[in-house]
């Protein structure tokens, strides 16, 4: 921080650094607006697109934890996303994600009493935020 005393700040001509910082900031703000314009124009107008994957299955003290990740590759954010998992033996488990934003990923776990084999994951419902 520059603390040099300036006796007449009102009449002081702007330091060149002020213009450089100003120009850099202006470029940054323009880039921000430009980025938003580009994403707005290229955005598809469809519903959220979900991709689910089982990351790993762990044995916990209170059953088996199937760690899952849910990715929304669409351009719309989904809220209260209900994901259901059913293993080969017919045992089901459910999880609700508060928000799955566009282009983002959320993780969680489904619990099963026995080791889940042949796990099938389906997204059952969501709301618009």
């Amino acid at each position: 921080m520059n603390d040099e005393p300036e006796s007449h700040p009102v009449n002081r001509p702007p330091h060149p650094a002020e213009w450089i910082i100003g120009a850099a900031s202006a470029l940054g703000v323009l880039a921000l607006i430009g980025y938003l314009c580009v994403t707005a124009l290229t955005e598809a107008d469809g519903p959220p697109v979900f991709e689910v994957a089982v990351d790993e299955v762990l044995a916990g003290s209170n059953g088996w934890h199937a760690r899952i990740s849910l990715r929304n590759t669409g351009d719309k954010t989904a809220a209260d996303v209900v994901l259901r998992g059913e293993d080969g033996a017919g045992e089901t488990s459910e999880i609700t994600f508060d928000y799955v934003p566009a282009g983002s990923m959320r993780q969680g776990a489904l619990l099963f009493a026995r080791e889940p084999a042949g796990l099938e994951l389906t997204v059952r419902s969501y709301t618009d935020p």
Binding site: P9, V10, N11, R12, P14, E18, W19, I21, G22, A23, A24, S25, A26, G28, V29, L32
Partner: peptide, 27 residues
């Protein structure tokens, strides 16, 4: 009063030197 801006300072000068850097800092 007491600011760096004198009466003759054009509006775009203050915008470029204070407002935009201020917004960049806030962001």
């Amino acid at each position: 009063g007491g600011s760096e801006l004198s009466e003759e300072t054009p509006w775009w000068s203050a915008l470029l030197r204070f407002t935009l850097p201020g917004y960049a800092i806030a962001a």
